[in-house]
Computed example of a mutant assay.
Amino acid sequence: MAEVAFAKTFLTSLDSRPIKLSPDHVEDPKTFPPRPPYILPRMPVPMSKPTQTRLPPGAEPSIPVHLKSLRNPPLDISLPPLPLSTSVIDLKAAVQAQTRIPVDKMKLLLNKRPVADSKVLKELLASDKDRSIEFSLESDAFWADLSGFLQQRLKAQAKAEELASLFRSSWQASRSS
């Protein structure tokens, strides 16, 4: 109830004030002093113009791709020139179309390190000096690495070898069917 009484007294005090502003409140704009324009200081080093020329749409540079397998089976695949926006998964799909090797069984190596499927050729070639990419498939070395990993984790050599042979036999069975 006190809030209502306060609001009424506040509104009545506002009603007693004049609605229009007094003429002495407004000032003539012609009497203002002129302001000089603000000029930005010069840059110590002028900005250079971009050197890259923009290509028209669809004229993206492309490169021929040549893939080699360092393991069995030996492969030497040449793909037609591909745009730099081609992803690794697209490369694997092109190899699968030529060789019938499943995409999930392929591993792409760059400087002896695996490359993620989400990478594109532009990213791979920007980080590589000699512009070559190694293409590898899982082989005996993969299974030896798996066995060593299992031995390290399980701390039991017999059990690790048993599991590695089980994994390999089931992989070979799924590949043959």
Rank of each mutant, 00 (worst) to 15 (best):
residue 71 R to F: 11
residue 89 I to F: 09
residue 60 E to L: 13
residue 155 K to Y: 02
residue 44 P to G: 00
residue 164 A to L: 01
residue 113 R to T: 14
residue 97 A to R: 14
residue 72 N to C: 06
residue 96 Q to I: 04
residue 138 E to M: 10
residue 114 P to M: 00
residue 161 E to A: 05
residue 152 Q to P: 05
residue 123 E to F: 14
residue 66 H to D: 08
residue 74 P to I: 08
residue 52 Q to Y: 11
residue 151 Q to C: 10
residue 163 L to V: 00
residue 82 L to V: 14
residue 131 R to A: 08
residue 107 K to I: 15
residue 165 S to I: 02
residue 175 R to F: 09
residue 152 Q to T: 04
residue 108 L to P: 13
residue 55 L to R: 15
residue 5 A to L: 14
residue 153 R to Q: 10
residue 38 Y to A: 02
residue 141 A to M: 10
residue 90 D to H: 12
residue 127 S to D: 11
residue 152 Q to G: 06
residue 135 F to K: 05
residue 41 P to S: 01
residue 151 Q to E: 13
residue 158 A to I: 03
residue 37 P to S: 02
residue 169 S to P: 05
residue 123 E to G: 12
residue 11 L to G: 07
residue 124 L to T: 10
residue 114 P to A: 00
residue 117 D to N: 13
residue 101 I to S: 09
residue 38 Y to H: 02
residue 166 L to E: 00
residue 43 M to H: 11
residue 66 H to Q: 09
residue 49 K to N: 04
residue 118 S to F: 12
residue 13 S to I: 01
residue 49 K to P: 09
residue 123 E to M: 12
residue 39 I to L: 10
residue 60 E to T: 15
residue 64 P to R: 09
residue 132 S to H: 15
residue 50 P to A: 00
residue 140 D to V: 13
residue 100 R to T: 01
residue 74 P to V: 06
residue 53 T to S: 12
residue 61 P to H: 10
residue 150 L to E: 02
residue 97 A to K: 15
